[in-house]
Design a binder for these strands. Structure first.
Lengths: 240, 240
DNA sequence: CGCTGTAAATTGATATACTAGTATCCACAT
DNA sequence: ATGTGGATACTAGTATATCAATTTACAGCG
């Protein structure tokens, strides 16, 4: 292999000044999204064997885009690929969950502080709208919709703070926590508690009290840590 | 496309209880590493056009592993792939650099605090060894080796804290900062300053003073922010 | 009955072939 | 001279074929 830093590689002005990434949705993207959802929702439980060939047939496509999707999932830690052996939906790495919570506290503590500093009236309206929807969904018992709005709340704070990149990191970190949480039994009043905690965070942001906002966020993130020990005894196959 | 969550997907116990990922180095891995280094070192400057076919020929392989490597680089934000049009080495997103520094402060502040809490004598010896090597490399003027040891110092702190996952995040975040920094002119005494700041961090960890350690780390991370405005005028093509 | 070695089967990794979308460039009209 | 339309060349996306490594199952031996 010779160096790829070859002088014959020339600059390509045409592609250079392109407005933004206007990537159309490719087959591989669609498959990735589908598998991602199936794994996150536990329709594909941890430990389940996957086969490129089989998935390709199910989707009616060739193995190439399937492979591409699996490689991306592998980087996100959602599947484990064993060369020449097989691919499985990754078990939830219990050791990584406490670390993921630490990351969330560090990063979301920062975003909520910044959001508290600069939140506008319009920003607050947006948060209020989310909380209102969450309250309704909690009453209806729509856990799936509730979870979406929960995600929206945290994303909105990151956006208000002006840190879209941090949200991207958080999303990848949240995955394993969310998978574990899906396994917990629906605790009565849990959703109501979450709404209440969100409201406390909201109030601190509205008051532009950065320290209180961080404290409220840290408390919120501590409250939703899944009981790994209990889960481990109930679903021993799902963890490692 | 039908659902991939098909009951016919069966559990595969054999692959389940595998000790760890013992992936051998694949062709795609090798190409990824090479391109990664070439981009980070600016041998492949931002904006340079890449062609799967051309790279494949240079490496003497097919397009498949090259494509796999480019997809991974694309996820890390190091190349931009425009379907059916071309692939270019991504320009350094100037707007992302301040955010990257924020992430580093939040995450490394946490790791250094934790490291200060629990660092053992052996851990300190490891940090001291790195600092000693850095001092020597600074005198020799070996910027490349110095940079490696700089990375080792920050990684060691994350490992002492017991947060290997956080280091993985930091590595991907650091990339854009490092690319920008490579463009700065070699400032006299910069390496000596870095060594001095590292020593302050080291002392705070040794004293088990978590707050001082965080403060020293925050200061250190602020000191090495590249002057984006200046770079932008000198290398307008490299940023966006 | 248990162990071991070997062969068949299955898997992911790579190579090659083909498709479809994009940019370029030149003929042509204005 | 300049702007426009379309043929053309080139790109990445996808499909198919081949390769090599690993597992698994079974035959044969102890």
């Amino acid at each position: 292999m010779q160096s790829a830093a070859d002088p014959a590689f020339t600059d390509f002005p045409a592609l250079a000044e392109r407005p933004a990434k206007i990537r159309r949705v490719t087959t591989a993207d669609a498959i990735f999204d589908r598998l991602y959802q199936d794994i996150l929702s536990l329709r594909m439980p941890p430990g389940m064997a996957l086969q490129e060939k089989r998935i390709a047939e199910d989707f009616g496509v060739s193995r190439t885009p399937v492979r591409e999707a699996l490689l991306r999932l592998s980087e996100g830690g959602l599947v484990d690929i064993y060369p020449q052996a097989g691919t499985v939906v990754s078990r939830v790495p219990v050791s990584a969950i406490p670390e993921a919570v630490v990351v969330r506290k560090a990063l979301e503590g920062t975003t909520v502080e910044q959001a508290a500093e600069i939140a506008s009236a319009g920003d607050m309206a947006r948060l209020d709208a989310i909380i209102t929807r969450q309250r309704a969904l909690a009453i209806l018992g729509d856990t799936s919709g509730f979870h979406e709005e929960d995600e929206a709340f945290h994303e909105a704070i990151a956006q208000i703070a002006g840190y879209p990149g941090i949200w991207a990191i958080l999303k990848s970190v949240k995955v394993q926590i969310d998978r574990a949480r899906r396994l917990t039994l629906p605790v009565l009043g849990r959703m109501e508690n979450v709404v209440r905690e969100h409201a406390v965070i909201r109030d601190a942001i509205a008051a532009h009290d950065a320290q209180a906002a961080r404290a409220a966020m840290t408390h919120h993130l501590s409250a939703v840590i899944p009981d790994v020990a209990e889960l481990r005894t109930r679903f021993p196959d799902y963890f490692c």
